[in-house]
Design a protein around this nucleic acid. Structure first.
Lengths: 213, 213
DNA sequence: CATTGTGAACGGATTCACAGCC
DNA sequence: GGCTGTGAATCCGTTCACAATG
């Protein structure tokens, strides 16, 4: 196996994939790093370096075959086979995320939604029933789930993480506004909307200053 | 005015702010960078550098006064005065985000939600009525809105951006899975959940490999 | 003497410049 | 000739080490 891929590279791969999907839909068969650069906003060199990190996928003088590159990227990201995931927290955000990724992503399937609030129980979201936390281990086992999204309140998020880790989850997308502790062999990514929004406010004021000055 | 703050620093400020809020709630008056480091997972040096970028807020030998530092951070981020924002796209995600930030964030207020889907119109989310796009300019003007969140489908997102820019919006949080073009004096931040989820899948497989090997 | 604030060293990611190849 | 692939140079953020100071 090669050395670990930089995080920055991994975050760009899904962008390439999406653009390739669009290109293929429009029957474009070959694409250059320069055009990809225009579509993504990343530099052409950066795109070539990103792709070259995983292998030589292009043809010098010509460009990249869109279908071939797409296959490679699907493989690299792990989207060449079905990924099952669970959502913990069936509030508004949890429901929206469930609908979002079921409808937008053919490679990824939500196989369980969990919440201990009795108001949410037995609701069905896109055909997936909301279950109590006690049923989590069985669902995770049955569908060999490794990936979870957390949309519970901050004060219970850490307890949820422990449960997830105990049940063999290896990657967690955390929407709860709190720092989570997890073992080294579990990858936690924070997608904290409060932080995004507050940074945005900072930049809105920067722009305003700049536009005035 | 000082040089531009690195993006990485700006993304950490809201984290500090949240922890300070917690500390103040627990009547903690002084905090060291070492303790902040434990709470955030960032290194103590990094925290000191981040804060020092904006000024000398601490006391050598003692630490940082929590209330004082909180005030400073609120000021720096721009949360010392009310920020009004609008949400474009009243689908599940748009509604969830509206509820999320209204309930979680006292400094920030959603003053308008817009959608041209007649099914969504006249619905009320946390007391805010869903309006047609035609009403956007009036609402933006009335509440001096500079910040917008976009949760419309990818194929209409660029048109929405144009409308927003024309109406004086200077910062956009984009949840639509597409790259948006905007003038230099408008800050666009992509919060693309597809990308987050796909990167997560990559890491879940990395962890799995690592745990096996 | 504990802790901040900071110049210097380091490291990782991006950009440059060009060699390699169709 | 045109575009990929890549070593070298550069840039930028983090870490280190320590001087400054209440």
């Amino acid at each position: 196996m090669r050395r670990n891929a930089p995080k920055s590279v991994i975050k760009r791969l899904p962008v390439y994939l999406r653009i390739l999907d669009n290109l293929i839909r429009r029957d474009v068969e070959i694409i250059s790093s320069r055009i990809l650069s225009e579509e993504t906003g990343f530099t052409a060199e950066q795109i070539r370096k990103d792709l070259a990190f995983f292998g030589a996928f292009g043809t010098r003088g010509t460009g990249y075959n869109t279908s071939y590159l797409r296959e490679k990227l699907l493989r690299i990201i792990g989207l060449d086979k079905q990924t099952n995931l669970i959502v913990v927290g069936a509030g508004h955000l949890g429901k929206a995320l469930t609908r979002y990724n079921i409808t937008k992503n053919p490679y990824v399937k939500v196989v369980g939604i969990f919440d201990n609030n009795p108001n949410e129980l037995d609701a069905e979201i896109e055909g997936v029933k909301v279950r109590v936390m006690e049923e989590l281990p069985a669902v995770v086992k049955e569908h060999d789930v490794k990936v979870a999204m957390i949309t519970v309140p901050a004060d219970v998020a850490q307890a949820v993480v422990s449960t997830l880790v105990d049940n063999g989850i290896t990657a967690i997308l955390n929407f709860a506004p709190t720092k989570l502790k997890a073992p080294d062999n579990v990858y936690v990514h924070n997608a904290d909307l409060t932080i995004e929004l507050q940074s945005l406010i900072y930049y809105s004021l920067e722009e305003e200053k700049h536009n005035l000055g």
